[in-house]
Design a protein around this nucleic acid. Structure first.
Lengths: 203, 203
DNA sequence: GTCTATATTTGGATAGAC
DNA sequence: GTCTATCCAAATATAGAC
């Protein structure tokens, strides 16, 4: 069962390295060095670099699904659940400043490479989009749910991009400020939805 | 003076290729093939790949400065000028769907590569930021000008990222819808600034 | 200024011993 | 399952002829 462990360790390391350095800029040797195995052994576990990328994306998909399920279980109201999404920017502040959003930067890179795994990477984004969309539906905003989901997703992507580019040249507290604004936007959207529903019920 | 022309042609071609395929993923041969010169000749004009990237960034900086100056000259009110920025998303719709934002994607890539020219690429983003900031100052929003500039910049970056990732899977008219919302946000911000100023003047 | 030819290095990938 | 040794292709870069 040693193989299982090594394989997992490779995937986790590659995940981290791809995030920090980018997929193309991370070589087999980089991963092998990090995991401290020989390149030959590496190929016992993965036949190609594409294959390891596919494994990394599968791992991320799984982790993301678990995270979304947890948010779903933990958040009482839909607003609370959406808040979990927004607050990711704060929870991962340090990493985002250094390496951007792991999902967005991967999708951007694979798009330029025209890589075979591009669609799977986009599925990561889509997971967030459809999850957010469902939350907005729960808020009673069926008609605009997907629009609102895309809007919020776009804003968090934009914040991550600028946070990484400017790092500490961004005005102090840029991310926190944007997060606060997203909170405000969400409260506004949620309460508007509620009064619309009450008005509908009162008719 | 043939050299001047060739050099310029190389830089323009590299600019385009770096945008479409990414910097690291574009090889010398790719550029040489595109320009239809030999690799040997290539090195007469540029000693290294880093050097050509630097030239490409300088070209983009120059083009950006010219564009901003034109917007400045053409737009009557500050709102109109800011609108020019927002409408870039529409003007470059097709390219953005295919390749994302040329500035954002370059900054993201160079950040991961930890590339020497990273700071110069960021300067491109900074050009937009400080220009937008000045427009908000003209609107009478000195105190919040940089915040508002960063906010708008982030939103346009986010829209570009999602537009590229989802391409036609995004709901129909995603970019246009977001642009409309940015217009609305801008009108709202501008008129609030105006009434604040009038209230101040009326005191 | 432009070419062909070639050197150098790196990264992806394989063979075969242990 | 892991290693060493090696191959191959691609990419950066140089030398020298025209």
């Amino acid at each position: 069962m040693k193989g299982k462990i090594t394989r997992e360790y490779i995937v986790e390391s590659a995940d981290r390295l791809f995030y920090q350095r980018g997929y193309e800029h991370t070589s087999f040797s980089d991963i092998a060095d990090f995991v401290q195995i020989s390149k030959g052994n590496f190929y016992y576990h993965f036949k190609s670099k594409d294959e390891i990328l596919a494994a990394v994306i599968q791992l991320r998909l799984e982790n993301t699904r678990n995270m979304l399920a947890k948010w779903e279980a933990d958040g009482e109201r839909p607003e609370d659940r959406i808040m979990s999404f927004i607050d990711m920017l704060i929870a991962n502040l340090a990493d985002i400043k250094m390496y951007g959003c792991p999902v967005g930067t991967l999708c951007t890179e694979l798009a330029k490479l025209n890589h075979a795994s591009r669609a799977e990477a986009n599925e990561l984004l889509f997971l967030f989009r459809s999850w957010l969309s469902r939350q907005f539906v729960s808020l009673g905003l069926e008609a605009k749910a997907d629009e609102l989901a895309m809007h919020l997703l776009a804003r968090s992507q934009g914040v991550a991009t600028l946070a990484q580019a400017f790092q500490d040249e961004g005005y102090e507290g840029f991310i926190k400020h944007e997060v606060e604004q997203m909170h405000a936007w969400l409260s506004c959207t949620a309460s508007a939805a509620q009064s619309a529903q009450e008005a509908g019920a009162g008719r």
